[in-house]
Design a binder for these strands. Sequence first.
DNA 1: TATGAATGAGGCTTCATTCAT
DNA 2: AATGAATGAAGCCTCATTCAT
Lengths: 192, 192, 192, 192
Amino acid sequence: MSDGQNRPLRADAARNRARLLDVAATVFAERGVGVTTEEIARAAGVGVGTLFRHFPTKEALLAAVLARRMEQVVARGGELAERAEPAEAFFGTYRLIVEQSAGKEEFSRALTAAGVDVHQALGATSAAVRALLERLLAGAQRAGAVRTGLDLTDLVALLLGTASAMDQLGPDPAARERVLQVVFDGLRPPRD
Amino acid sequence: MSDGQNRPLRADAARNRARLLDVAATVFAERGVGVTTEEIARAAGVGVGTLFRHFPTKEALLAAVLARRMEQVVARGGELAERAEPAEAFFGTYRLIVEQSAGKEEFSRALTAAGVDVHQALGATSAAVRALLERLLAGAQRAGAVRTGLDLTDLVALLLGTASAMDQLGPDPAARERVLQVVFDGLRPPRD
Amino acid sequence: MSDGQNRPLRADAARNRARLLDVAATVFAERGVGVTTEEIARAAGVGVGTLFRHFPTKEALLAAVLARRMEQVVARGGELAERAEPAEAFFGTYRLIVEQSAGKEEFSRALTAAGVDVHQALGATSAAVRALLERLLAGAQRAGAVRTGLDLTDLVALLLGTASAMDQLGPDPAARERVLQVVFDGLRPPRD
Amino acid sequence: MSDGQNRPLRADAARNRARLLDVAATVFAERGVGVTTEEIARAAGVGVGTLFRHFPTKEALLAAVLARRMEQVVARGGELAERAEPAEAFFGTYRLIVEQSAGKEEFSRALTAAGVDVHQALGATSAAVRALLERLLAGAQRAGAVRTGLDLTDLVALLLGTASAMDQLGPDPAARERVLQVVFDGLRPPRD
DNA sequence: TATGAATGAGGCTTCATTCAT
DNA sequence: AATGAATGAAGCCTCATTCAT
């Protein structure tokens, strides 16, 4: 497995892969999953051939973009979970995910339509996100910051729904905050 | 010569148009806007030519499906607004819209991607929905059932977000109710 | 053959047939043979069904339009041949044909492309035109008004070519006359 | 690294483009502009995709074929204009154009019907042909070989008309020559 | 390894023709 | 006999993917 020498070409290849992922994330988010592979490649400054060398399929690219977003969520959310008290960790991560999730539903749908099982495709990453969320939810519920009765599935649905609402709203920060407060208040334990 | 009923052919045409609309609504909802016109036609039991006679474009069909859903919302929501007190009218219509809105965001996105201005395309219907929602929101706010500060745009975003959460959740009624309660509680005026 | 009674419906049908022929001639000339049968029918104020009752095929309509033009040429050219001296009869009929021939080449091409033998399709009419032209050509040659050596085939080619030049030129009468004079002068016996 | 010849792939692409142009010219001329893109591609030994990579539209291909023919005319006609005396240059180029123009009118018509402005589409080439013709016409008129009074527009109409007559005539060289002589004699200054 | 030209299945749409009313 | 809605084959074009250079 260890092979001692890492050739410069590998470095190039890695750089290309990373750039493709970055660019694809942006382009998919801005113009939908309908953009052509050609356009993504051009935006990344490589040929289509290179794109397909790194991702055997358009769906594979889609899944990779999705996976990377989720990894980032896990990474940052994991930190929050360590450092902050339960309520702050939960709501902070909620914010994080919502901001990272623009268009994510469209991604899943495209993958599903292509016959890909999103969970399978995302594999470990997906499981990590779910584990993180479960931990945060349980903590916040124990701390009395979030109503009981909600389970992980509900939370995921709410997260995606909130992200979708944000997509609708556009960039106005005040409006985004108002909508987020509605959801946050709704998540808190009911009165009396 | 007597013109008691003077469109025998039109009856068939109308039936086909209605069936196409019904079938398209179902199929788009179930399998996404990617379904081919051929498949929709087949599912409706007509030839593609008939589909295109009634809807000059795939997008036109999409828009028509969307419009019809919104018309139904306006019709039923309008009744509620007449008959019920403000809170019930507001939350009842909210439910109605959420149930009618499966996949609606995807529709808009597809239309927008095709260069169609959804508002323009839906024209009067869209305006009617907005007017209805505005009336219900203002009434519920005056009655103290919904927090102030939220405007129509926020409400629309929340509606679509909730619909999206429902799409995620699938048919389990208990889960749907839990999520809906989170949003409803969040919409109420904040404590102290 | 004689059938004594001509029913009123026949009159309607005949009127429709005539109008379809008129309208089709105009529309084909103005917009090319690509116009749809639907458009022709609409322009004639009838349904497509009626068009196809009278002409079993779009090509049949094309051929009928062509045939009628040629019949008119034969009729008027025949008169000229009776009444005028050979030179006037020849050049007069030449003018006639050229004016009546706008787009005719396109017709033939369309028919040929559809696998129709234009000569067969036009049958008697075509033969009559050729007979007329042959008579006029021979007369004019005998009278020394047209060079010898040209045969009927050459003449037909020149006629269509002249018509094509006119199509190119548009309606400017002075230009049309200049071009026509070039051809007429060329048709005369060569100098020395 | 040395850039003596630096387009290895382009060589193939250029070969394909050229072959497509050649094949399309032949096929359009033989069977009309109605031939399908599929057939052209097959005749050229490439897939449809390749055709559309080189010519974004069927009309673009048509225009390119037309443009290439005109370029050839300009090139060969230009040489003649340099080397020969005015009359020979004029009539020689006339012959050239007529031979190169089979079906050209049909091309223009098809392009026009598709909403393409032929002059615009052909741009510089079209202008070059017109300039060449204008020069040749003026020279021949000054030399007394062509009648005065004819302008460029008349000449173009006559050229296309002659080409059209040739299309009618088929390959018989004697007949073609007879018809050409009619036109040439007609172009000369009128007697007395 | 990167490139981008080539491929061709498949999508949307048109339109001549048929047929129920 | 007239109507016009329905039909579906066929055309143009797109785009994910492959492959020669």
